[in-house]
């Protein structure tokens, strides 16, 4: 059994506009699944529902906790929060939304460890230092405030904060969307190597099909709340079948 997350017939509307119009999918252990589509296609709503950050009007999300497949709606709020704080991670497009800018870089990382139950100060400091190195931030910055960090560093700090509990499933919403191209390459490369090394499963929302091609094993193309096409990333991008996917692929300027 390698299914980690399973969504069935998700439906959700904002007013009269359907954001999810019957979406089903599975995420397998160690797999990177990209969700691409234009603004308003429902991809961010899908990510939030999968991550247990909002409830869909209809449909179910099940998570395999190692022993059983359990419905998110049947987990209590406490248990869901425990999952989100330790075994899952979320990377926001804007790191300022996830980090606390008025406490130190080390404090930001330590906070998540403490929320997951670690209380030993020396441990927390050593682990925070280790993860700063993993995301290529000089450990000397451990006691600096992130408000003085560049956008790329903030994003890497957010990734370190999320990885410190060694999650098995990570949700990413346009993780390089707000970064300059030169910084973007570094963060992408970092995500690519960490994800492979740690064996993470990732659900990645992006409108950038270059990012999807670089990172994802599988790809889902969404439009108007529906999955219009899915498959192996290179197959969907090199041999797109749906009219919308053909438009998406042909609209990209070659680098």
């Amino acid at each position: 059994m390698t299914t980690l997350l399973k969504a069935h017939e998700l439906r959700h509307s904002f007013g009269a506009t359907p954001a999810l119009d019957g979406v089903s999918l599975e995420v397998r252990r160690h797999e990177i699944l990209a969700v691409v589509g234009e603004s308003g296609s429902g991809k961010t709503t899908l990510l939030n529902v999968l991550a247990g950050r909002m409830n869909a009007d209809q449909g179910t999300v099940h998570y395999h906790d190692g022993a059983n497949l359990r419905s998110l709606s049947e987990l209590g709020e406490r248990e869901l929060h425990r999952l989100q704080r330790a075994r899952w991670g979320f990377v926001e497009q804007n790191p300022r939304a996830a980090l606390r800018l008025n406490i130190t870089a080390g404090g930001n990382i330590g906070e998540r460890l403490m929320a997951a139950g670690d209380r030993h100060y020396g441990n927390i400091r050593a682990i925070a230092t280790h993860w700063l190195e993993q995301v290529e931030i000089d450990p000397k910055r451990l006691d600096d405030l992130p408000m003085n960090f560049s956008g790329g560093m903030l994003q890497r700090l957010q990734i370190a904060r999320m990885l410190v509990t060694e999650p098995e499933l990570v949700f990413m919403d346009e993780p390089t969307g707000g970064l300059d191209a030169s910084v973007q390459a570094r963060v992408l490369d970092l995500i690519r190597s960490l994800v492979r090394r740690l064996g993470l499963a990732v659900v990645l929302v992006t409108h950038d099909i270059g990012v999807a091609r670089l990172l994802a094993d599988r790809l889902i193309v969404m439009r108007q709340g529906l999955i219009v096409e899915s498959g192996l990333t290179d197959q969907v991008l090199d041999d797109p079948h749906h009219a919308y996917t053909q438009l998406l692929v042909s609209s990209v300027l070659p680098a």
């Binding site: 498959g231 192996l232 290179d234 197959q235 090199d238 041999d239 079948h241």
Partner: peptide
Amino acid sequence: LKALYGNYL
């Protein structure tokens, strides 16, 4: 060749 690699369906 691409079909043999699963790159084309």
